[in-house]
């Protein structure tokens, strides 16, 4: 299979062209995943761009993105394939005359049964196979990007079922035999870490932990996505958000919320961050009432535009997530 990327640097550049700012770590691991044909498991807090990474890789390589959203109770018929009973039934009805014809010359019951058996694979063929995302990704003649989103939401047994696909890129359909990928897809799995994934699954993947970005990197992201916002204001806003992430909140503002806030500031024609403005627009960043109240209280000592403000509970963000 032709590799999608030629070097980590190229990954970085082509993702940047798609509007995704990535660190050298992300670029290197994405490149490795492509080189080694290994699925990439991405973990991290919500809203740091895990799903986005798969999307931009698809866009950057010009491949189709096939997405499987996981949820509790997801099973093979929803993820892999299903026989189209209705269509099969319809075909039997329509082909009744033809069947009569085939059976007409048969002498004995056994012979008719044999003849029908000989036609069996007409009905259990790809024609009647309803392809779900996983099978679609495997059978696609063009290389694709397969995104298995929020794998931690699926049941543990679904994970076990994924193992064959992820290690050998093949599936067994009892009626058809083993179907092997024509072109190996690039596979991304994301997990919000709501539960521990099985060792077997992890062993088959490369691992990337995405955390909230550093200050400069986040500023780059905002500059790229919301270029209308004034440079100095961008820095202030991002510093403020980064400060919020150090607080003990139920839900920390993610990158997407930073971007929403930046857009809000543009719409409001804000020229500088002051207390009134911040407290009016805070609900763009924080989605829990308790968090809102807590930050409102903390705003009191915050003078005019003090973006250097740090919460007293100076908790390391990484350690909170670990």
């Amino acid at each position: 299979m032709p590799d999608a990327f030629s070097s980590p640097n190229q990954v970085r550049e082509s993702l940047h062209d798609q509007g995704y700012v990535c660190s050298s770590e992300i670029a290197t691991i994405t490149y490795l995943s492509d080189q080694l044909d290994k699925p990439l498991l991405i973990e991290g807090p919500a809203g740091v761009g895990k799903t986005e990474l798969a999307k931009v890789v698809a866009a950057a390589t010009g491949r189709e993105l096939i997405r499987l959203q996981c949820y509790e109770g997801l099973d093979e018929t929803k993820a892999l394939y299903e026989w189209e009973y209705a269509k099969q039934l319809l075909y039997t009805q329509l082909l009744r005359d033809k069947l009569q014809e085939v059976l007409a010359s048969a002498g004995s019951l056994a012979e008719s049964a044999d003849r029908i058996a000989a036609e069996e694979n007409v009905f259990f063929s790809m024609r009647f196979l309803l392809q779900r995302p996983l099978l679609k990704a495997l059978l696609s003649p063009e290389p694709v990007v397969l995104l298995i989103d929020e794998i931690d939401r699926a049941d543990a047994e679904f994970e076990a079922f994924l193992l064959e696909i992820l290690s050998d890129f093949q599936v067994s359909v009892p009626e058809l035999g083993t179907l092997t990928a024509r072109v190996q897809p690039l596979v991304f799995l994301t997990s919000n870490n709501t539960r521990e994934l099985s060792e077997a699954l992890k062993r088959r993947c490369l691992y990337l932990f995405l955390n909230y970005p550093e200050l400069e990197q986040e500023i780059d992201v905002v500059n790229l996505k919301v270029p209308e916002l004034d440079g100095a204001l961008t820095r202030q806003a991002v510093e403020m958000v980064q400060g919020l992430r150090n607080l003990d909140l139920r839900k920390h503002p993610s990158i997407s919320e930073t971007l929403d806030w930046a857009r809000t500031l543009v719409v409001l024609n804000a020229e500088r961050l002051d207390r009134g403005l911040v407290s009016d627009t805070l609900n763009v960043l924080l989605k829990h009432e308790r968090d809102l109240k807590r930050v409102q209280q903390r705003l009191e000592p915050m003078s005019g535009d003090g973006p250097e403000y740090q919460g007293p509970e100076d908790e390391d963000d990484q350690s909170r997530y670990l």
């Binding site: 980590p8 050298s24 770590e25 290197t28 691991i29 490149y31 490795l32 080189q35 080694l36 498991l41 973990e43 870490n193 521990e196 060792e199 992890k202 062993r203 993947c205 490369l206 691992y207 990337l208 932990f209 997530y321 670990l322």
Partner: peptide
């Protein structure tokens, strides 16, 4: 991974080991 990225530079070397050997935060 080492074959793919080489062992010349420290950073890619570290990342390739980390992403292949470590699977839990």
């Amino acid at each position: 991974a080492l074959t793919a990225l080489g062992i010349k530079d420290r950073e890619p070397f570290r990342i390739s080991l980390r992403s292949t050997l470590i699977k839990r935060t």
